[in-house]
Amino acid sequence: MTATAEPRVLKHQALRAQLETLLDGMSVGDPFPAERELAERYNVSRETVRQALRAVLLEGRIERRGRTTVVAQSKVVQPLMIGSYTEAALADGRSASRILVGLTQHTADAELAAALRIAPGAPIAQLERVLTTDGYRVGLETTRLPADRYPGMLDNFDHTSSLYAAIMARGIDFERTEETIDTTLPDAREAALLTVDARTPMFLLNRISYDQNDIPIEHRRSLYRGDRMTFTTTLRAG
């Protein structure tokens, strides 16, 4: 048995197509019409406009700037790989930097200790930074390191530089990673740091990196804006 009925096109889906056509004739940074203007222009309800705008926002074609909406630059395409976020962005021809949120000392709870194969209560160095690309705040990265393994490394660390490079300078090679990817919404603090609405969908990446001796190097939690980032990977048979 086969399905023959044509799928129903909802009002907001039809409007989304019209908005994308409108965007094709606009440039990055141009102000995008307000909800009321769009509702009047296309003779639809404000709710239909909101649904269509949300889809276009998630596609990365528009962005919120306070109470206004403008045409956005294309999304950042980030390969899933072992390496520095900055290096990947620069290889894509974009500018990239980091904003320091905090460098703090903690002790490992049971879960983190198990992940890093250290004793519960062992000292942890935590580095938290906002990731920027082309002036956009696109991610929030929190890295936790076993402090005893990296004595003094972060004392004079340039927070805008690559932590990977600083670790590798100590003769530690990144051999493999284990990573999980989920979707989530930011909490109030995360939304403020990334200057986004709390309803903005996020990619949540949790990674544990291992060295050439299969010893855990770091635990990293990365939160990326779903409206500004796209992730890619290559899978090979066998």
Rank of each mutant, 00 (worst) to 15 (best):
L103M: 04
G102M: 05
V70I: 13
E63I: 12
D92I: 01
V56E: 07
R65D: 14
Y85M: 04
L103I: 05
A39L: 06
D92H: 11
A55V: 13
A89S: 04
Q73R: 06
V56Q: 08
A72T: 11
A39C: 02
S74A: 15
L58Y: 05
Y42K: 06
V70M: 00
E59Q: 15
E37L: 01
R64N: 13
A34Q: 12
D92N: 11
V71C: 05
S97E: 10
Q51T: 02
L57P: 03
P33R: 08
L90M: 09
Q78R: 15
L100M: 03
R64A: 14
L100T: 07
L57S: 10
T48D: 00
A39M: 05
A39Q: 02
R50A: 05
S95N: 10
L53E: 07
A34I: 08
L58S: 03
A89P: 10
S74K: 11
A72D: 12
I82C: 10
S45K: 00
V56W: 02
A88E: 07
Q78Y: 11
N43C: 09
A89L: 08
L58A: 11
A96Q: 01
A34K: 14
R64S: 11
R54Y: 15
E40T: 02
V56T: 10
T86S: 12
Q73V: 05
R41M: 13
A52F: 02
G66S: 14
T69G: 06
S97Y: 01
K75F: 00
V101Q: 14
E35Q: 08
L100P: 04
E40W: 00
T86W: 07
E40I: 05
R98S: 11
R98D: 07
V70K: 14
P33M: 03
L103E: 01
A96T: 08
V49K: 07
R64F: 00
E35W: 09
L80M: 08
L100K: 02
A89M: 11
V71H: 06
Q73S: 13
G102R: 08
R98I: 00
A55R: 13
R41V: 11
R36M: 04
S74Y: 13
Q78A: 03
V70T: 10
A55S: 14
V70G: 12
D92G: 14
T68K: 15
A55M: 14
M81F: 14
P79C: 05
E47Q: 05
R50Y: 11
T69W: 00
D92W: 03
G102H: 06
S84E: 01
Y42S: 05
R98H: 06
L53R: 13
N43R: 11
K75M: 13
E59A: 15
R64E: 13
S84N: 00
L58F: 01
E87T: 15
S45P: 00
A52P: 01
R67W: 12
L58Q: 08
L58K: 10
T69A: 07
V56K: 03
L58R: 06
R98Q: 04
A39N: 01
E35H: 08
Y85N: 04
E40S: 03
Y42M: 09
V49F: 11
L100R: 02
V49Q: 07
V76T: 14
G60A: 11
V44K: 05
E37I: 02
N43A: 13
A91S: 13
Y42T: 04
R94P: 12
L58V: 04
R54P: 03
R65P: 04
E37Q: 05
A39Y: 09
R67N: 03
